[in-house]
Simulated assay, not measured.
Amino acid sequence: MNFKSIVNSRGGRIAMVAVPVGIAAAVVMGGVAQGAVPVSFSISGQSFTMGGTELDGTSFSQYGGVAKLQDGKQVPVAIANIGTATIANLCQSVVTDTPLGKVGLVITAGDQAGNPVKAQNLQIGMTDLKGDAVFNNIRIGADAASVITDAKGSAGDFAQDSQGITLKNFSQVAYSTTAGTLALSDMHLKVVTDGSGCPGK
């Protein structure tokens, strides 16, 4: 099953949320007019890709909004919040046009042998999310101001939340990711000059 993501709050798809395709448009439009991704840094405006073979998280929420870029433009996004998360076989990449051609930065970390990436208070501002998802005790149509995560949206905004989330073989396109802590086991960072990124990107 394919999922699309939607992000954030009126006051404000890394954190991470999945909305069934049938209701994705409604979720996004519910908060785009006033919403913004609540991050404490200027967003460059360049998207990046991130994926993995499995993400297991507790305390999840998602609501629609926009990312305000450094040049003043606004991009509709989905804000996903996850209280704690482990990610197996993480890959993150960004490709930039340079005088030398397309240059990519690729980071890999974590594995499925007991050393996954670990994150706390994860928040992702995304525009697309694909994978197989399972939600535990999900509420769809919750008020964004009453979701179970510490990060919340504005009263009256459409949201969904769940006590747990599992994503398998997922990939996403995002504009921002923040975390209280992010532990990368067996991290490998490399620069590539062939324009490639994570597998399949």
Rank of each mutant, 00 (worst) to 15 (best):
F60Y: 12
D132M: 07
Y63M: 15
Q163G: 12
T108E: 08
I124E: 05
V66D: 09
N115R: 10
L129N: 02
P199R: 10
S185K: 09
I124M: 07
S154Q: 14
K73C: 02
E54T: 12
G141E: 10
M16G: 05
G65R: 11
H188N: 14
G110L: 08
K168D: 07
G125R: 04
F48S: 11
V75Y: 04
N8I: 03
D128M: 08
G164H: 05
I140F: 12
D97F: 06
T181F: 09
V192N: 02
S162G: 15
F60A: 13
V173E: 11
Q70N: 12
G83V: 04
T181Y: 04
V103H: 06
Q92M: 14
A88M: 04
V106E: 03
A133E: 03
T166D: 01
A25I: 05
S185M: 02
A36K: 14
T166K: 15
V77D: 03
A15V: 04
G101H: 11
A142T: 12
Q120M: 11
V173W: 02
Q62Y: 03
K190P: 00
F158S: 04
L122F: 14
V106T: 06
G110I: 03
G12H: 02
G131R: 02
Q74R: 15
N169L: 01
I124D: 07
Q34P: 00
A25P: 00
K4A: 10
V117W: 09
A155F: 01
Q34A: 15
G180T: 11
I6N: 06
R139C: 05
N121K: 10
Q123S: 08
S47V: 00
S185E: 13
I43L: 14
V7P: 07
S40Y: 04
V103F: 01
I43V: 15
S40Q: 13
D128G: 07
G64W: 09
G141S: 09
S176Q: 09
G195I: 09
Q123M: 13
A26F: 07
T177W: 02
G101V: 06
L182W: 03
N137H: 13
K118A: 12
A179P: 01
G156A: 08
A26N: 12
A142Y: 03
T181P: 00
G83D: 06
G51A: 01
S171L: 00
S59T: 15
G45D: 07
K152V: 12
A24V: 04
K68A: 11
Q120A: 15
D132L: 07
A159K: 07
D97H: 00
Y175H: 06
V103T: 08
G101C: 11
D157Y: 11
C91R: 09
H188Y: 02
K152Q: 11
I140Q: 11
G200E: 09
N137Q: 12
G52H: 08
L189M: 10
A159R: 02
S171A: 13
N89I: 03
V134A: 14
V37C: 12
